[in-house]
Nucleic acid binder design. Structure first.
Lengths: 211, 211, 211, 211
DNA sequence: AATGAATGAGTATTCATTCAT
DNA sequence: CATGAATGAATACTCATTCAT
């Protein structure tokens, strides 16, 4: 059903695809240039439509931005959550896998750069920031928290403060995401994301102190 | 005697102070609203001058922005570096102190939010991003790297990869800075910065695994 | 039937006509007030459109000016050239006719005042001046030169220096044009253009010296 | 008296020289760039003073311009007039001399380009144009008219219309002046001013028709 | 549904002009 | 007298948004 849309014609398919094309175009440009610096006209052109067409689907530039953000809110890490629901094995390994998966499925993708835009526009779009914080980042954190919780419960991890440890881990991951998406000019804060993440996990698990 | 400059006329002359006032005003507004959304007029008003006055000191909005960023480049953590040059004692303690100092002296200040703006505008102002990466963030990283290096040399730390460990630690710190400056609407990613940093240090040093 | 385009709404669409209307408006105002003193807004208003509309057709005030000038370059005296191609009769008469025709068809028209603007802005728009000199004035001169050449070849004129004689004749004609277009305030340098031209021809042909 | 100004000091001399320096600077720049495009600041700099200084001597940019023009009104051709008052000899020769003198003493000088500016700004500064027309050009014309009158009276010239012949001759001369001052980009309408003038005189006197 | 054409409300920037010293 | 500092009033240009087709 739903997804089977036996498109009567290419034209009809277009009609239904338009919003998605616009959202994708907007997302890409917002990430590249920021919200304020991105011209509606460029978004339209990139989506292969004319400027006024956007107004058929979104009430304003602001609404378009909101739609872009909300579009990211839902689907991101749902899969990861299920994937790991049934995991057996030690929590250190689980942690490693979760973090890597989350990177591959989300952080590494170009779209992840949206977090940069939202952070930048936090004061101009408070509600957006709030929603994003709650739905996207919050979900990330819950993911991490679960793993930590499991590790502690199973005495595989020290009894650290759950909330704080979650924050620390998430911070490093998010920073990687932001930086990685900030394209060329910032120069890699991080040489190789995967190695960075491995080091993160290693340090988080084993600490600096010799044992 | 006499001429006790009681200037209360239409305007006041303060050649010396003006640039600093303008830079401060611009910095505050850029952090609050981002580069593109900040109107020159607002910067001027906040600095207590009229719009054209800025052009007496800066050639354009862009130059003003660059000056703002360059102004941050030099002084930030010079003090910390000296402070710690003569430190005696174990490296774990040193790490704790460095991170806390850096927070108090730099990250906690409102100005630190500039990193958000630069990250956001990285593609629009590549040179700026490069400079900032090299001069400001780079210095941060060198600071951390020194501590790690010392710890490893003295066998107080495990023999981790220096570069990667530095990246991990710095990332978490920078994320804290960005988030903390993103004011209200993003909601605290981090409840209490100091506790966050303590947790960071604790985890970094001791790891999650029980010993 | 039906849709008899009775557009009386906030604005009207006339893609085809607009550029010409704008050019005409700009030409008139440039001639009246000069390039620098003419405000884009006035040009727009006079053309019955809003300011931004001009940017739909011309990239900048400068481009608009260039277009105005280039628009004059082509068509001016083409007709005269053909008209006179087949002329039979003595060269004195031909000279008289050419000069009068050129006046009626070009110099007497309001548009001719453009030469004043171009002369005034010669240093600010060198390329324009060059083009105008070559294409418009140059054509005028070639016209005159042909007549002179013919007269000399047929021994109807003295064997004067062709180039110089052309310059002299053209100068007087152009001055008439400039002055005539400079409207009221300069006071007529010339009382009656036609009489002026007749005197010019008469003097040029017969000279002052009695024979 | 008057002109002997035994300047007490260099400083005092300065004070008296200032207006002249400003006028000269303004004249040069107005000729080069036109009235509207010339910035007060540039005029001041070229005169070696600061912007506000001009306001000590002239009420506004407009007044400065007027002063520039009025300054030209008086002295220009006074000398020529006297020089020729006592001329003996035939009028053809007189005509030649007058025109050449007038060129050397006035038209050839850079300042003569002012006529271009005034022509350009005729509509914006009507009074100026009127004054200039009457005082400067008018004097030129009277000069020519005298010569013509003399020639006709002495039966050395044909009995042409005095006013019209004057206009024709003056036009060519003025055009030469305007063009010559319009610097490089217009390309010489006239290859060599002196040869141009010789041709002018020759044609005016002898005409094109063979005798 | 889609768009070419048009515009209102800005925004950075310039420049003649004026204070206060 | 002279000027560094400051500004009000413009002006070119941009951009999100809307109309009419």
């Amino acid at each position: 059903m739903a997804k089977t849309t036996c498109n009567k014609s290419r034209w009809v398919r277009r009609k239904e695809a338009r919003p998605q094309e616009l959202l994708a175009s907007a997302l890409a440009l917002f990430i590249e240039q920021g919200y304020a610096s991105t011209r509606l006209e460029d978004i339209a052109r990139r989506a292969g439509v004319s400027k006024p067409t956007m107004y058929l689907y979104f009430k304003s530039k602001e609404e378009l931005f909101k739609a872009v953000v909300r579009g990211r809110v839902v689907p991101v890490i749902a899969e990861i959550e299920t994937l790991l629901a049934g995991f057996e094995g030690d929590s250190a390994e689980l942690m490693r896998r979760v973090i890597m998966l989350r990177w591959v499925h989300a952080g590494a993708k170009k779209d992840a750069g949206l977090i940069r835009v939202i952070t930048a526009e936090a004061n101009n779009f408070p509600e957006l920031a709030t929603v994003y914080r709650a739905e996207v980042i919050g979900r990330d954190m819950r993911l991490i928290a679960k793993v930590l919780d499991r590790g502690i419960a199973r005495h595989e991890f020290r009894q650290v403060d759950l909330a704080l440890a979650t924050e620390v881990l998430t911070s490093a991951m998010l920073m990687l995401t932001m930086w990685n998406s900030a394209v060329q000019p910032l120069g890699h804060l991080v040489d190789d994301p995967v190695m960075f993440l491995e080091a993160l996990v290693d340090l988080m698990l084993g600490g600096l102190l010799p044992r």
